[in-house]
Design a binder for these strands. Sequence first.
DNA 1: CCTTCTCCGTGCAGTGGCGTACATAGAACA
DNA 2: TGTTCTATGTACGCCACTGCACGGAGAAGG
Lengths: 242, 242
Amino acid sequence: MAPAPVQNQILNALPVDARERLFSHLKLVELPLGKVLYESGGLLRHVYFPIDAIVSLLYVLDNGASAEIAVVGNEGVLGVALFMGGETTTNRAIVQSGGWAYRLTGTRLKREFGRHASLLHILLRYTQALITQMAQTAVCNRHHSVDQQLCRWLLLSLDRLNSNKVTMTQELIANMLGVRREGVTEAAGKLQKLGAIRYSRGNITVLNRRQLESGCCECYAVVRHETDRLLPVTQTPSSASA
Amino acid sequence: MAPAPVQNQILNALPVDARERLFSHLKLVELPLGKVLYESGGLLRHVYFPIDAIVSLLYVLDNGASAEIAVVGNEGVLGVALFMGGETTTNRAIVQSGGWAYRLTGTRLKREFGRHASLLHILLRYTQALITQMAQTAVCNRHHSVDQQLCRWLLLSLDRLNSNKVTMTQELIANMLGVRREGVTEAAGKLQKLGAIRYSRGNITVLNRRQLESGCCECYAVVRHETDRLLPVTQTPSSASA
DNA sequence: CCTTCTCCGTGCAGTGGCGTACATAGAACA
DNA sequence: TGTTCTATGTACGCCACTGCACGGAGAAGG
């Protein structure tokens, strides 16, 4: 059974007339783990509305070190630079959790802006939520411990998944957080001792979400609240075909 | 002699007709050092186009620790949340270097969007530049030393000033970078030994910009290039009255 | 001139994360 | 069933930055 576009919160929030038109131009595409949707400096040709995939915005330094700037799931859209006017960004978008997304060409998207002002408005509100996430990431990178950041990262992932299982090696998490793999091992070990998670060769099972929240810094909640404020789940469920 | 609005790069980049209309609604206001233009969570009522002032976007944590998210001078505008749709942001805007700015009410700004599509387009391009700066700040906070970040910070300030003198105590710089005051003392001491700067009780004189650039991480150049790309100095100098 | 205050310099122990190296244990595969 | 590979655990020295404490020096102001 194919996922419906409305499973993406942005698409779901569109008024009916805009949805009807837009949906006919959407293409369902698979986003396998590790796929690079766009590269730093590369020209963007599409925007992606994730359904069940999670995509990281990653910055890679000259020396190969990296850090996650933000994470996007079914609450958002990838490729904001397309409608912000720049057409490219300085970061890489890489699939962190495989799944599906709806894809739309940039030219088509911009054509629709002329017809439906609400489309741009919603995308801009999401972009502000993304800005908030980036700002908070900057602060978190400065002031908080690996332990705290791991909790934040797990919670961000949980929110964008249907299950309590995150498929991700410690090595990859380390790349996202921009820390050593061993640092993640240690932090994850503590959480496992507490009974908050279970870890086994790339499979994390979250056993107790509360413990993650209490081990976390304020950064997660700030972003969560701001995202909820900017993107209320307006539930416009009429006339979806699937 | 009053500064002209065109000294702000965004206002300057507007096409003539949009400028003429907009300028009549601008109000010149002074931005003294330390003034808070808006507070975290506070409702934004105006946008500010700096002329010679520099404003920091600062995030303040629950425990009082802080970190600069981005810095805005005459290349930009303050209050992007107003046209992004959120009306508030989670950070504080505080004047880092006193001066003047042109102010515009949010309602007036939005009214003008309807008439001049180019106005929104330019503001969105600037917002993308701001996003780039935030993202780079996040990476820099993760991977680079205080020495490097001080160089970056000084260069960001220099670019937004007419002179080579930065008025700023080490204590305040430390708040911006989110590090200890002593850390700034040490880093500044090194730069002074190298002959790159001269430091005296809140007055920094940059003697050799090149040395700052070579002591800096790539983060400065990345943001600089991207800003230049997104906001070319289009120079539309016609019919400015002042 | 003397006091006071702000700003800057310095020292020291403590620690969190880094780089490196290596051990172990599931998974994959022959 | 044994080999190989990948993922995780652990240990050790190192260094940047922290928190704290204090000393000195320039500005301000009587």
